[in-house]
């Protein structure tokens, strides 16, 4: 058994889980079609990489600040975007991916463009330690988000998802609640992105690729909306289905596109035949 490989997969899985949990908060629990989750994720990655590279910040601090910066970005966007119809919010957030992609590719003095940025390896030279840290952070994320969704605030989020008008008529401040949901999602997306940056020690504009969003959507929808446990399952399911491809003997060149075809196909199949996924409690509206 190749333990290095398992550890590698484990780390990526944990990072995906953190991102997917927070995506579920805005999409599954609040009904915000935040198609910019990968944009926020990538932003966090770049932010953390740059903070450590340019300012020599301590990695843990950088990760946290990157999370905060991402949260601010999410909430700033919220200001005009949340006043729009649902569909437009989706498009604005999608548009964010395109803008960040263009920025990361062209602002060469800052991001080195397509060449990408080498980050800093995390405190842990050992990947095993990294895995443990990643799993811990994933667990913390789960616990925190679970507490939020079970709280009064979480109830308000779900009310907004189910019937925004009724929530307003019961005195809930729709705009502030949505902004908070987006902000929390953005924070964890940023942290997850930072983790990736400091694990791969390399970040480039491809993180903003549409295919990355499709992977995330597959994980979330397969697992099911409004269920954090479902998300965990969804991430595991997707990883378990696609990783074995590596061993069937496809050449590395074919592997990438093959996996993307499978992610896309899975997403389509679930959307058509079982839109609630494994443990989902709600439908996408």
């Amino acid at each position: 058994m190749n333990y290095d490989y398992l550890i590698h997969i484990g780390i990526l899985t944990a990072i995906y889980m953190i991102n997917a949990f927070s995506f579920n908060l805005s999409l599954g629990y609040t009904g915000l079609i935040n198609l910019g989750q990968m944009a926020l994720f990538g932003f966090g990655a770049y932010a953390s990489a740059l903070l450590t590279r340019l300012l020599g910040m301590n990695v843990w601090v950088a990760m946290f600040i990157a999370g905060l910066m991402t949260m601010v970005l999410g909430m700033v966007l919220a200001l005009p975007a949340l006043r729009l119809k649902k569909d437009y919010l989706a498009l604005v957030m999608l548009g964010l991916s395109f803008i960040l992609y263009a920025l990361s590719k062209n602002w060469i003095s800052l991001t080195r463009g397509s060449l990408g940025l080498p980050g800093t390896v995390k405190l842990f030279k050992s990947n095993l330690n990294f895995l443990i840290a990643a799993i811990l952070i994933a667990i913390i994320t789960y616990v925190v988000l679970k507490k939020i969704v079970n709280s009064k605030l979480g109830l308000v989020f779900q009310a907004i998802r189910d019937d925004e008008l009724s929530a307003a008529v019961l005195g809930k401040d729709i705009f502030i609640s949505k902004a908070i949901a987006l902000g929390i999602s953005a924070f964890f997306a940023g942290v997850a992105g930072s983790l990736l940056a400091h694990y791969l020690t390399f970040i480039d504009p491809s993180i903003f690729d549409l295919s990355q969003l499709v992977i995330l959507l597959s994980m979330l929808i397969v697992g099911g909306l409004a269920s954090l446990e479902g998300t965990a399952l969804g991430v595991l399911a997707i990883v378990l289905i696609t990783e074995p491809l590596r061993f069937i003997g496809f050449s590395p060149v074919l592997l990438g596109p093959m996996r993307e075809i499978i992610y896309a196909a899975l997403l389509l199949i679930i959307l058509i035949y079982r839109p609630r996924g494994l443990l989902g409690k709600v439908d996408i509206d």
């Binding site: 109830l155 308000v156 779900q158 009310a159 998802r161 189910d162 019937d163 008008l165 009724s166 929530a167 008529v169 019961l170 809930k172 409004a226 409690k281 709600v282």
Partner: peptide, 20 residues
Amino acid sequence: RTFQQARLFRYLTIRENLLL
């Protein structure tokens, strides 16, 4: 107020609807 067509938080329980 109530509405002409009942508007409830359909994925939530009775308790959760009332708690809001």
